[in-house]
Amino acid sequence: MAHFHTPLKKARGAAPAHHGTGHFIAQRLTALANLFFTAFLVLLALRLAGAGQAQARAVIAQPFIAIGLIAGLATFVWHMALGMQVIIEDYVHTFWRKALLLSLNILLSGLLLLLAVASIAMIVFGS
C-alpha cells in the first residue's frame, strides 16, 4: 500500500529539462533579427528582379550584401530549427519517432545553412 514516490519521480527524465529558457530567449532574439533580415531580403529580391546569372552574382558578391545574407540566413535557419522543434514536440509523442525527427531537424538545418554559406563564399571568391 505505502509507496513514497512523488509525482516528480515519475516526471524526471520524461522531458528535455533545463533548456526551456534558452530556447525561449533564442526564439525571440532570432525573431527580432529576422524582422530586419526579412526587409533586407525583400529589398534584395527587388534589386535582383530581372537580373541574369552574372548580374545576380555581381550583386551578391558585394561585401555588405554577402555578409548580410550569411548573417540573415543564419538567424533564419536558427529560428526555423527552433520553431520546427516546437511543432515536433507538440505533435509527435512516440519516443523514437520524436528523437529521430528532432535529430533530423538539427542535422538538415545545419546542412542547409552550410550549403548557403558555401554557395555565397563561392560567389564572392568567384569560382
Partner: peptide, 8 residues
C-alpha cells in the same frame, strides 16, 4: 538556398 547554390 537551392537557388543560391545554383547561382554559384
Amino acid at each position: 538556398i537551392w537557388w543560391l547554390a545554383a547561382l554559384a
